[in-house]
Amino acid sequence: MASQDAVGGRLPGLFGSPDTSSFTEFLGAYSPDALPGRRVLPQVAAGAEEIPHGTTIVAVTFPGGVVMAGDRRATAGHVIAQRDIEKVFRADEFSAIAIAGTAGIGLELTRLFQVELEHYEKREGRTLSIEGKANRLAAMVRGNLGMAMQGLAVVPMFAGYDEVEDRGRIFSYDPAGGRYEEREFHTIGSGSPFARGSMKKLFRADLSAEDAALVCVQALYDAADDDSATGGPDLTRGIFPVVASVTADGYRRLGEDEVGALARSVVEGRYEAPGGPTAPLR
């Protein structure tokens, strides 16, 4: 609906076109430079290595919800750029988003996605379906394809509670904006092969919420064990993974004390068995 004030109002763009409830689309018209993926990049291939990268994210479903967790390390080349970065965030009341890849762009993407969901909710008076949210995120990742081709790739993972089907769901992405629904569990980032192997052995269909969190912490320990870019639990500084659950009660980030207790028990167990819990052979 084009309004009359679009002619002489102080902020004409605000009340007029484009007639959309997508924040990203509006911002693209109102202030195009504010969007990641619309910037002109210098034509050099080198340099991307020196920008901080976030690493391993894991997620696992359990009856009635999903748990998502990420380690706390960011690396720039071979240097640890930050040891307490957070890569798992609340997207809205019933979903979580986590990022791996170029940290700066990932954090921007996360912020944009959070506003996108809230903006839609406020304008339309309803929340998007979980598929709708996953698709919006895919479009936003696709918008970053140009930068991904120059080495500044970012790949999110999206998890949420599906109110219609009463279960947790996990979506993964590729840098070109491909969206894939994952069953049971998924991992992304540089330590993901090790974490995925670990989760494969630890996953059960009947996990409790607490055990699902424990599976995540175990998998992150295994990733940190074999991948230099993934940080393990830092007992000396008290830096533990960020663990969040999404259930019918909404998004909840586990408290420092809860995750600390889980991480300590995992480390404790590894004194006895450095490889972690073993699966029965037959």
């Binding site: 309004s3 902020l11 911002l27 202030s31 504010a34 809230e118 406020k122």
Partner: peptide, 17 residues
Amino acid sequence: ENLRLGGVRYADVNGYQ
């Protein structure tokens, strides 16, 4: 309603930037 929608945009743009 038009003013409300514009207000949500104003708030979200400023909060984001």
